[in-house]
Amino acid sequence: MTVIELAQITKTYPGGKMPAVYDVSFRVEKGEVLALLGPSGSGKTTLLRLIAGFEKPDQGNILLNGQEVSRPHQCLSPEKRGVGMVFQDYALFPHLTVEENVAFGLGGLSRELRRKRVQEVIDQVGLTPWVQRYPHELSGGQQQRVALARALAPNPIVLMLDEPFSNLDPDMRTQMRMEVAAILRRTGSTAILVTHDHEEAFAMADKVAVLNAGRLEQCDTPEMVYHIPSTPFIADFVGQADFIPGAIQNGKVLTEIGIFPNVSTFPDGAEVMVMIRPDDVDLLPQAEGAATVLGRQFKGSENRYIVALPSGQILHSSQHSLAVYADRTKVDLKLKVTHTVLFKRDDEFFKQGFHHPYGVKNA
């Protein structure tokens, strides 16, 4: 069952030279978590506000549970949409206890039904020991669970989470996104998560919608977005990506680091860029190796190496944390590419001067 449907949504703010979002369409099914992922200014928050009813679209329409709630210059008010919101700063009432915060949106229920529902969601989010505490007496993670419980209490059609973990320290952020994801699964909630963090999107979402300059570039599972990105922007944004120049000859892709199968529709003679992820590349120390180690980043569970090819082209390689190679070590490359992802070499992304660290141009 489709819970949220956007059809060709466009929104330009007064005085804006370009649309904040342009011709965006997607669907969210019941019980799915969709992450709106992109850099600042990509249109994530605008889409959230359009779905919630805080903004009206200039073009297109929005349906919730099959009911049209937005069309150009007309929209159903937010309080009538059945949308729950968890804001970046939680927006808790400081003078109310946990129990009273959660009960705030349930004024239409009888006292007994309200008490029962409040207890139910407090149990679901694990706040029972703290029901009589005030927000200032809680940790950041506990405050977030209060905000989540308050949003869940009215049984919303869709739950909207706007950068919900940005105020937490890194360790707490990882823990809370696991807890929130578990709560969403347990309650069967349909949710939209706004984030600029691809790890957060991948960890929590069933589908990821990647936005760039107001346009939806891909909406797919986290695995597809990472392994088979639709554009070079996505390839670079959702994880470390290197792009190796290549040319298609006799149905193969010829590059400096080897020959790859051409699984694309690019014809012979086409000039392309091949996406390589760090986990596609193994390093084999060899005195006469063609590549040179430039640097190492220790990441705990792995080492991330920066390697230069004879042409000056840069590659990154993920190696075991115990595989330690000194700078200037000569290495050969062993590729583990399971699928070939190709992009046009004249794509605007490369024309704009995509660069890697160490000042070496990648295209």
Rank of each mutant, 00 (worst) to 15 (best):
D279S: 06
G359K: 13
D280W: 06
V263Q: 13
P57H: 05
K351N: 12
L106W: 01
G269C: 04
T292S: 08
A52Y: 06
I248M: 10
T46V: 06
N362G: 05
R111N: 06
T340A: 12
G31Q: 05
H356N: 14
Q74S: 11
M172G: 04
T231W: 03
R215D: 03
Q313N: 08
A270Q: 01
L333K: 02
F54Q: 06
L92M: 13
L211F: 09
P285Q: 10
Q143S: 03
I257C: 09
T340K: 09
E288L: 10
I306H: 15
G300F: 13
K344G: 14
R215S: 13
F349T: 01
P310S: 08
L254T: 04
G60Q: 13
L152P: 11
R304W: 10
P135M: 07
I228C: 07
R328Q: 15
A209T: 10
V293Y: 08
M1W: 04
K351F: 04
F202L: 06
F350M: 09
V272N: 02
D162A: 04
D123E: 14
T329Y: 08
A91V: 04
G140H: 00
S110M: 09
G43N: 00
R177D: 00
E100W: 03
L76A: 09
A241P: 02
A181Y: 03
K336A: 11
I314S: 02
K56R: 14
Q352N: 13
I157A: 13
E199D: 12
S110Y: 08
F354P: 07
T174V: 12
R304V: 11
T340P: 06
P229N: 04
G239M: 02
Q175K: 15
I244P: 09
F243S: 05
L283N: 04
F266V: 02
G108F: 00
D282H: 15
R296V: 14
Q119V: 04
R49M: 08
P278I: 03
A103Q: 01
M204H: 05
T128F: 03
M224S: 12
T128Y: 03
D123P: 00
G53W: 09
G53L: 08
V360C: 07
N155C: 07
D236I: 01
S139K: 07
K207L: 14
Y358A: 08
G246S: 10
G258W: 13
L294Q: 11
V324I: 15
D206G: 10
Y134Q: 06
P170W: 11
L109I: 00
H196T: 00
A20N: 07
E271P: 00
Q240C: 07
G60T: 11
V131S: 03
V158Q: 06
T10K: 03
P39K: 11
A308V: 15
F93M: 13
R145G: 01
G31V: 01
E348K: 15
G107K: 15
V194C: 03
E179T: 13
P129C: 02
A308Q: 15
S189C: 11
E223N: 10
Q297W: 14
I234V: 15
G82M: 08
G15L: 12
L159K: 01
R49Y: 09
V24A: 09
T2Q: 13
A323M: 15
G246T: 08
E179R: 06
A147Y: 00
I259S: 11
H339S: 15
Q249I: 07
S110L: 10
L193N: 02
C75Y: 09
V102T: 01
A241Q: 02
